[in-house]
Simulated scan of single mutants.
Amino acid sequence: MTDSKNLRTAMLAGLVAVMMIGLGFAAVPLYNLFCRVTGFNGTTQRYDPAAAAEEPQVLSDTISVRFDANVSPKLPWKFYPERPRDTVSIGARDMAIFIAENNSPHPITGTATFNVTPDQAGKYFTKIQCFCFTEQVLQPGERIRMPVLFFVDPKIKDDVDARDIQEITLSYTFYPVDEGKKAS
């Protein structure tokens, strides 16, 4: 009797261990999906014209969008928005330009991460085209202009937690792709 009880306990413990390993592998994709769906932690939406039933309605309401640019201390780049702020009609497509310049004597590859604040605005800030998460290779002294096409979804006006937001900040931070190599 004790042997069968021990075997059952061991099998249950093994099953729990396998389930925990599986959950560990699934956690990152599930978290990313959760953030994309809810806008949690300032995660923006990506516009998919094939999935969109129709173009968003353009409202007469406007919202201010502030553009913030940062660079890791390990990346000898200058990075900034062409215009630090824009007032956009809710639902209308708009474009912001960010400029990056390699101030080092050798080519460097960087990639940008982003976030949107306030966090409640993330699920309504929809990027159509963006340079984020794409490796950017800049030659010594090279300067490039990188566009971001976006709109603020009119559904923001239906959300009691977000409808009174007057300003959204889109912030990017560039990092060197290979942290193991010295960037300067």
Rank of each mutant, 00 (worst) to 15 (best):
G91V: 07
L33G: 00
A13P: 01
M11N: 03
A17F: 09
K123L: 03
T134H: 11
V18G: 03
P73C: 01
T111M: 13
E179L: 14
P56V: 06
A50V: 06
C35P: 01
Q166G: 09
K155Y: 04
S171Q: 15
F98N: 10
R145F: 08
P118G: 13
L7S: 08
Q57A: 11
P29S: 02
F174M: 15
E142W: 05
F67M: 11
V28P: 03
H106A: 15
L23I: 07
E54Q: 11
D86Y: 03
G42W: 05
S72F: 04
F25M: 02
Q136R: 04
N32A: 10
V152A: 05
R93H: 06
G14D: 01
R36A: 04
Q120C: 13
N115L: 14
D178S: 12
K5F: 05
N70H: 11
A112Y: 09
A13M: 11
T9L: 07
R145K: 14
N102Q: 14
M20I: 03
S64M: 09
D119T: 11
D119H: 11
A162E: 15
S89R: 12
A96E: 13
E135T: 12
T169D: 06
P73R: 01
M1F: 09
F150K: 05
R66Q: 12
P147T: 09
A13D: 02
A100E: 09
V148H: 07
P81Y: 02
V37D: 02
R46A: 08
E55L: 15
N70C: 02
L75N: 08
S104A: 15
R8L: 08
I21L: 14
G141D: 12
T109P: 05
I128N: 06
L138Y: 07
A51W: 02
L30G: 08
T87E: 15
S60M: 03
G122N: 07
P154V: 04
A96M: 13
P105W: 13
L12A: 09
D178Y: 10
L33F: 03
T44A: 08
F125I: 09
F114H: 14
N41K: 10
A96D: 08
M19N: 10
D158Q: 14
G42N: 01
L138C: 05
E54L: 01
T44V: 00
V71T: 15
L12F: 08
F150G: 04
C132N: 11
P84W: 04
L170E: 14
D158R: 05
D68E: 15
E167P: 00
G42A: 01
P105H: 13
I165T: 12
C35F: 05
A183V: 06
I90E: 12
A52L: 07
F25G: 05
K181A: 15
V137M: 07
A53C: 00
I21E: 00
Y124D: 04
V88S: 11
R83L: 12
Y175T: 04
A121E: 14
L23W: 14
V58A: 00
V28L: 10
V116N: 13
M146K: 04
W77L: 06
N115M: 14
P107L: 08
A17D: 02
A112W: 06
L15Y: 01
G110Y: 12
A51R: 06
D164M: 06
C35V: 06
